[in-house]
């Protein structure tokens, strides 16, 4: 598998990274996401990283950048399912993921984006 499927639910894009991505795949995923945002006019983006066993500085950068880029396009990003050991490692390395919201799982991530949406845009 060398392409991560991006689903759309309401005005939120959802994708789950299920395999360890090498750098080129990660960059391509970033491009795919931005294109999808542009094509669909989505308002929210949920990235499920619960299957990832490693988030190093490169992957951290890609995720953080993607969220910032999506933000410029008016999309709020939630990163969900970061494992405890990865949270610890990110902390110890001093990696900061900026411009991203965090949630425990997909469901809570959707909920979170919905709440943010209500604050920003009012109820539809």
């Amino acid at each position: 598998m060398d392409k991560v499927p991006i689903l759309k639910m309401g005005d939120t894009l959802i994708l789950a990274i299920q395999v360890e991505l090498h750098d080129k795949m990660a960059i391509r995923l970033q491009e795919d996401i931005l294109k999808e945002i542009h094509d669909t006019g989505a308002r929210g983006l949920v990235i499920d990283v619960s299957a990832l066993e490693v988030v190093d500085s490169f992957m951290g950068r890609v995720l953080s950048d993607t969220a910032s880029m999506a933000g410029i396009m008016g999309v709020e990003t939630a990163l969900v399912g970061i494992r405890p050991e990865i949270a610890i490692t990110l902390q110890e390395m001093g990696l900061e993921l900026k411009g991203v919201h965090f949630a425990l799982n997909l469901e809570k991530g959707m909920e979170l984006l919905q709440n943010i949406g209500e604050i920003f845009y009012g109820e539809d």
Binding site: I88, Q91, F102, A103, L104, G109
Partner: peptide, 12 residues
């Protein structure tokens, strides 16, 4: 602080 920031990464 570090512990609390790690918890935040997990959405807590």
């Amino acid at each position: 602080l570090r512990t609390m920031q790690a918890a935040k990464l997990m959405g807590a």
